Computed example of a mutant assay.
Amino acid sequence: MDATEYVLSREPFIVRRTVRWGDCDPAGVVYTGRFPEYLLGAIGFFKNHMAGGSMHDLSQKFDVDMPCKGMSFDFIGSLWPGDVIDIQCVVGDVRTRSFDIECSAAKPDGTPVFKARFSPICIERTVRKGKPIPPELREILVQFQTSPVENA
């Protein structure tokens, strides 16, 4: 069986996802609730790419967790079983404690499907409160910071 999700390109960073039949409602359209799953899958690949291995290991090194502070979507098109989408990820704004990962999804022919923003916030592991992004992590984020994705 072919993978439903994999890294297609590292520069620019793109994850390819194939819609499964089980992702769809009886009318054959992807459930709205599946889109965050698609986004989080791509974000997971992107974070590990930025870390040069495992973002979890990097988080432990800096003694910081990065839960989701916010997530937003702009739905542009619909998806059906068997459709393929390419989700491009870049780092957007980097603030004191939080940052944005901007994503844009389109079909291989360029037809836009959605734009999304995922915003992690750095927190201290032991006390579970916000903390500034460690300087070494900030340096990594800035390396992947580019203009917002334009294909959607």
Rank of each mutant, 00 (worst) to 15 (best):
Y6S: 04
P112M: 09
L39P: 07
F114C: 06
V64N: 02
C122I: 07
M50F: 01
L39R: 11
A106I: 03
W21K: 15
H56K: 10
G82T: 14
E11G: 09
F46W: 09
R117F: 08
I140S: 04
K131V: 13
T32P: 01
I133L: 06
K115V: 12
P36F: 12
K131R: 15
T18G: 01
V84C: 01
S104E: 00
F144K: 12
S72Y: 08
K61A: 10
R138E: 12
V64A: 05
R97E: 04
T32Y: 00
R16T: 15
G52E: 08
G77S: 09
F73Y: 08
I76N: 04
M55L: 13
T96W: 12
D93R: 07
D2W: 12
P148N: 13
I14L: 04
A42N: 00
V30A: 00
F62S: 12
R10E: 11
D25Y: 12
S147T: 05
D86L: 15
K131N: 11
S9T: 00
I123F: 02
R17V: 04
A116Y: 10
V84P: 02
R16M: 15
V19N: 04
N48G: 00
P108A: 06
Q88K: 11
P108T: 02
V94F: 11
S54N: 04
E136W: 12
R125P: 15
I123R: 03
S104Q: 02
S72G: 12
I140P: 06
L58G: 10
K115M: 07
C68W: 00
V90F: 03
Q88T: 06
T126D: 13
C103T: 15
V84G: 00
R17L: 05
